[in-house]
Amino acid sequence: MSIAALHDTRILTGRSLRHILRSPDTIITTAITPIAMMLLFVFVFGGAINTGSSESYVKYMLPGILAITIASGVAYTSYRLFLDMSEGMMLRLRSLPISRSSMLWGHVLTSLAANAVSLLLVIGVAFLAGFRPRATVLDWLAAAALLLLTTLALTWIAVIAGLSAKTVDGASAFSYPLILLPFISSAFVPTDSMPSAVAWFAENQPITAIVDSLRSLLTGAALDASIWVSVAWLLGLLAAAWVVSLFVFRSKTRG
């Protein structure tokens, strides 16, 4: 990216961040559903779930809750992008001598910041619910990087939805399957308790690898291949979503 494009991106990120600072409820609503789910699972269902380990259940399922937090948080990116596209702001920006990629990156960087705050809120409540990780500083850094990469990949998927949606409801509807995906993974129960077809899907979808690596990092357990499977999945998704976003952006803005 050129210096000029970085300058434009910085200004448009500032604009988009101000939207969040003026309506902090978007961060709170992003965090509140995962927090409610977490409390439900820990204090209602958790006692009946056998994870096959002696660790506390909150420690087992927190990574899944974090995945749900990101999946619901990125829906705001598609919502804001949809508004830009439908209310004439995008036309105005495109009539200016500024870099085109900055019009998308401003929203993407804002999504990273907003989701980071939501994730911290959820982790904070997890501590109150008895989450006591045995992670080193290095583990925490690796976990943060993995969460950041997950947010980045899902945000670019949200960009596709925001650019191609025809209604405001359509703009955020893409996130529902993403929110459900952690339930068909190792996030809440071990996959070997599932029927074989479902277990096969759960074991081979990216959320399981991501959740397993996060769990290893946060519990201080030895890392296995899941970390590389996660990174490969996320980089692949990120590259695909980014390419499709740029394609959709170009075709939507070149009549």
């Binding site: 604009r15 309506s23 209310e87 004439g88 036309l91």
Partner: peptide, 8 residues
């Protein structure tokens, strides 16, 4: 169409 940011 007025291209104005309503939050600003």
């Amino acid at each position: 169409f007025a291209a104005i940011d309503g939050v600003h």
